[in-house]
């Protein structure tokens, strides 16, 4: 029984680390910042989740509390931190790639329709 869990956990670990590899290849290959941060956030969060599940399958049962706490923390904070980076990039005018079609946010800001004051972090 323990053997099956070990093999299953090993598969989760390898797939998770492959997802981390996809994240780093993505931030290497993508043409502009906004596409890089999309790939980086999604693939790295997914890879870390898979690795946490794999470690939980392999390791003793008493570790599972800490692993659940770590998983919840990463799942809530990783999108927030990349959202903060993307806002900083947008408002310091990091350039888009040439293929970008529409930019609704630029239209709204230039018409002065934003509801809140734009200088709060």
């Amino acid at each position: 029984m323990g053997n099956i869990l070990d093999i299953l956990g090993g598969i989760f670990l390898v797939v998770g680390s492959l997802s981390l590899l996809i994240a780093s290849i993505g931030i290497y290959r993508m043409p502009d910042f906004y596409n890089r941060i999309q790939v980086g956030t999604k693939a790295s969060t997914f890879g870390l989740l898979l690795i946490v599940v794999g470690v939980a399958l392999i390791s003793p049962i008493t570790w599972i509390g800490k692993l659940i706490a770590l998983m919840l923390f990463v799942l809530f904070t990783n999108p927030i931190s990349s959202h903060v980076i993307a806002r900083a990039a947008y408002f310091t005018k990091v350039p888009f790639t040439k293929e970008t079609k529409v930019d609704k946010l630029h239209d709204v800001i230039s018409e002065g329709h934003m509801k809140k004051v734009k200088n709060n972090g």
Binding site: S19, I22, I25, G26, R29, M30, P31, D32, Y34, N35, Q38, V39, K42, A43, F46, F96, T97, E99, T100, K101, V102, D103, K104, L105, H106, V108
Partner: peptide, 22 residues
């Protein structure tokens, strides 16, 4: 999301059609 991202990253031509919508 991760399957589609993997396909997008590993394809040689990088199919992209980005934009910001509301």
């Amino acid at each position: 999301a991760n399957l589609s991202i993997t396909k997008r990253v590993l394809s040689p031509s990088l199919p992209l059609n980005p934009g910001i919508v509301q």
